[in-house]
Simulated scan of single mutants.
Amino acid sequence: MALSRKIPYIPNETEIIDRSFKRASKKANLQYNSGTRMSIIESDMITTVTSSISKILSSIMQSYPNLDEMPEFYQKLIDLTVGIDRLKISLDRVSMANKTIKKLSKEYMKDLKKRRDSREMVRKEFYGRTVSIINGLSNDLYFLNDARKKINDLPAIDLNEPIIIVTGYPNVGKSTIVNMISTGRPNIASYPFTTKEIIAGHFYHGRDKYQVIDVPGILDRADSQRNNMERLAFLAIEQINSIILFVLDLTETCGYSVQEQLNLLNEIKKNFERPMIVVANKTDIKKVDSDIVDIFISAKTGENIPELMDKILLLAKNDQKNKKG
Rank of each mutant, 00 (worst) to 15 (best):
L314G: 05
E238G: 03
L250N: 01
Q320D: 01
V258L: 02
V258C: 08
P275V: 07
K287F: 10
N322E: 15
L265I: 07
A299T: 09
S298T: 05
N263R: 11
L308K: 07
C254G: 03
V247W: 00
Q239F: 09
K287D: 08
G302K: 06
L264Y: 10
I305C: 12
V247E: 03
V288Q: 09
T251P: 12
N241P: 10
E307G: 12
E252M: 06
D284P: 11
Q261T: 07
E307Q: 15
E307K: 15
E238C: 00
N318L: 15
V293P: 09
C254V: 04
K287W: 09
K321L: 15
K321R: 12
Q259Y: 13
S290E: 07
A316C: 12
L265Y: 13
K323A: 14
K282E: 03
Y256A: 04
Q320H: 04
K286L: 10
L265P: 03
K300V: 15
L315K: 14
N304W: 09
D289S: 13
L315E: 06
I312K: 02
L248W: 08
S298G: 03
E260T: 11
N318A: 04
K270T: 09
I277V: 14
I305G: 08
L315V: 13
E260A: 14
N263H: 14
V247R: 01
K282C: 09
T253A: 10
I295S: 07
I292H: 08
I312T: 06
E252S: 14
K321G: 04
V279Q: 00
I297G: 03
Q261K: 08
K269R: 15
D294L: 01
L265M: 11
N271T: 13
N281C: 00
K282V: 10
I244F: 01
Q320I: 07
F272M: 00
F246D: 04
I240A: 05
I305V: 14
N266G: 00
V278L: 11
I292D: 06
I297K: 03
T283A: 06
N304L: 09
D294H: 04
